[in-house]
Each structure stands twice: as structure tokens, then as C-alpha cells.
């Protein structure tokens, strides 16, 4: 096993909703090494998205500590976390991935800009990689849901971050495209030695994953395979 790139210690997180009481996460201890492909399963509301948000530094835990690449997120401060998201994290969300007023290419380019580079070529290559060459100039509302997702993936990949967090990356895609996209994503990560943490319902995700984690009622369990994991 390589060095741990993501580490959480006794992570607790309270529900933000008005309706729920209680905790979304109950004492999550996690250690993910560099280069691992993680598949995260769980029913809706089990806290998967919450966990991703915490790891990305977008939210703060009620209790506990998170370390990304050895740095304590709490200590980093807002500025530090912003930098983290720029350079070290690629995020593919469940909803609202793209900025509606930018073209597909510009969306990808923005990711690069924030990371400090501004060369168009990697962006075009990334687009080609996800099979959308020729659609650089399209705005999100001109693309299908699946295409939007693929642009989002290209955006995450283009800056070659050490960590990629993906929340239901194939959720809206048909099985063929979905498999293609997943394939692409995993291959890229492997090639780059990046850590990938995916939330997914698709069972075939397990095939690609090094580890399978299941979340239930705010707790995390290690699974050996996808069997018995209902979406």
C-alpha cells in the first residue's frame, strides 16, 4: 500500500435539513491510498454526497478531522481549501455540472485557468478523450444530459489532479455510454496514478474498483464485492 492521500478521523456531520434530526455521518474513519479506485455505494440519504463534500473541503464536519495529502483541512483555512480544490481535486457532481453561459470548451478551460494554466490544447484533447470533438462551441443547453456529464468528466480530468471525486458520474447515461465513460475515467486515473472515489449505483462500477465501500445510516463498511449491493 502506498501513502494515504485521504484520511478521515472520526468524522461526524449533522443534518442540515429542517426535517431531519440527527447525524448524516457517524464516526467515519477512512484511509485511502494514492492511486486507489474507490466505489461508494449506499441508499439515497445514506450520506454519500455529504462525505464527498467534506472530503472536498466544501463543508466542515461537526466533529472529526480530515487530512488530504497530509494536510488538515481545518487548519488550511478557506484560502488553503480553495487552492486544494484548484490544484488537487477534480469534482464531478450529481447535478448542475456546467456553467450554462460558457461553452463546453470554456467550461473545461475554466478548470485549467483556475489551476494556473491556460493552454487550449489540453482542453481540446480532454474533449476528444470523452468523445465530444467538434462540440467545443456548444453550450450546455445544446447538449444532452449524457454529453454534459462527459464534459464534466473532461473538465475534471484536464488538470490531472491527484484526486477525483465523482458523484454518480454515469447516473444519466445509457448503459453503453455509461460503460464507455466509466472505462475512460478509470483508465485515465490509472494512467495518471490518480485516486478516484466514485459514488455510483451501477453495479459494473465494482468491476473497476479496487475497493468497494458501502454507506448505511451514516456508517461506512468495507465490502469485498458488489454482490448484494442493491442500488
Amino acid at each position: 500500500m502506498g501513502p494515504a492521500i485521504i484520511r478521515t478521523y472520526g468524522l461526524w456531520k449533522e443534518y442540515e435539513d429542517e426535517g431531519h434530526g440527527g447525524m448524516a455521518l457517524r464516526g467515519i474513519d477512512l484511509e485511502i491510498t494514492k492511486g486507489q479506485i474507490i466505489a461508494l455505494f449506499g441508499k439515497s440519504g445514506s450520506g454519500k454526497t455529504t462525505l464527498l463534500n467534506l472530503i472536498a473541503g466544501l463543508d466542515a464536519p461537526t466533529k472529526g478531522r480530515i487530512e488530504i495529502d497530509g494536510e488538515d483541512l481545518a487548519v488550511l483555512g478557506e484560502g488553503g481549501r480553495t487552492l486544494l480544490r484548484r490544484k488537487k481535486l477534480g469534482f464531478v457532481f450529481q447535478f448542475f455540472n456546467l456553467l450554462p453561459t460558457l461553452t463546453a470548451l470554456e467550461n473545461i478551460l475554466l478548470s485549467l485557468e483556475l489551476a494556473g494554466a491556460s493552454d487550449r490544447r489540453p482542453a481540446l484533447e480532454a474533449l476528444a478523450l470523452v468523445g465530444l470533438s467538434g462540440k467545443e462551441g456548444r453550450f450546455p443547453h445544446e447538449l444532452s444530459g449524457g454529453e454534459q456529464q462527459r464534459v464534466a468528466i473532461a473538465r475534471a480530468l484536464v488538470k490531472s489532479p491527484p484526486i477525483i471525486l465523482a458523484d454518480e458520474p454515469t447516473g444519466n447515461l445509457d448503459s453503453v455510454t455509461g460503460t464507455q465513460v466509466l472505462d475512460l475515467l478509470v483508465r485515465r486515473c490509472r494512467e495518471a496514478g490518480a485516486t478516484l472515489m466514485m459514488v455510483s449505483h451501477a453495479l459494473n462500477t465494482c468491476e473497476y474498483a479496487d475497493r468497494v465501500l458501502r454507506m448505511s445510516d451514516g456508517r461506512i463498511f468495507e465490502e469485498s464485492s458488489c454482490e448484494g449491493l442493491a442500488p
Binding site: A56, L58, E78, G79, T82, L83, L84, R85, R86, K87, L89, F91, F93, F96, N97, L98, L99, P100, T101, L110, S111, L114, A115, R155
Partner: peptide, 14 residues
Amino acid sequence: RRDAGILLAMGASR
């Protein structure tokens, strides 16, 4: 707001 959420997640500063 929505765009701000996306941008912040992408690493833009407030």
C-alpha cells in the same frame, strides 16, 4: 447562486 456553487467547488475563491 448555482453558478457560484459550481465555481466554488471548482476552486474559484469567494
